[in-house]
Amino acid sequence: MAGSMYESQDLYLDPSIKYWVLFPIMIVMFLVGILRHNITTILSVNQSLSTGEVKESLAVKYGRLFIANKNYIPESTFKLRKNYWYDAYNSGKYLNDPNATANGDMLDPANMESTMTGMKKAFANLIPQYVLMSWVSYFFAGFVIIKLPFYLPTRFKEMFQRGIDTQNLDISWVSSLSWYFFNLFGLGGIFSLILGSNNSAGSAKDIAPQMQMAPNQKDRFNKLHKSLAEEVKIVEHSWALDDIEDQILIKYGKKSPVNNDKKNK
């Protein structure tokens, strides 16, 4: 009875398992993934932004670039921009809706469409997963289908060997449900090859239901602009070109880098 977990247990599996279990599950999941991708694409086709929305999000992008690269422009123009953008961010000049409040009422008609689309997308991702999972565990339960090439701790045994109630069976032998999970993660890579990197049939991220879509924060940008205003206010200018002449002279060997020892050719 002493289960020898260190010896590999060889089980002889019916080869037809390969054809009737492994491949069908993989093929079905693959097709479902493509179907999901197409549906999501159709759903997102109608999502176009308004001028106001574009403006406020690009204003944020601008602010970040400005803060990152401010040292490459002369100080006078830096000051000009600093003052202008501090005022602009503070007064909400570039905001779509300066009066937006945090909890954008989800039933509000203006919000409705984007919330609906978000929900549709979430469902399109979740439903196939649940359906597939129950299908797999219903039809393909009760036997092991594959041996994993690596060793896992005992905890996983319960998950991977669902439906197989032996205690001694080597953890490497897993049930079809685990094959389902492997496909879930693995096919993500294949999808990005076939559908391009921006596909909606990817794996792990869909498992956690996309709850950030639901509380549609209308004032997301309002907050961003305010915080950018603060950042812009405190940022200081340190001209990168201040000693560029010396840098060039040193680079071309006309001047030695030591300060006190200037060697001019």
Binding site: E245, I248, L249, Y252, K254, K255, N264, K265
Partner: peptide
């Protein structure tokens, strides 16, 4: 805003290059 020395050095550098 740079010294005459630097200016001359830059001119020489440019000519040489």
């Amino acid at each position: 805003s740079t010294s005459d020395e630097t200016i001359k050095a830059l001119i020489d550098l440019a000519k040489e290059q």
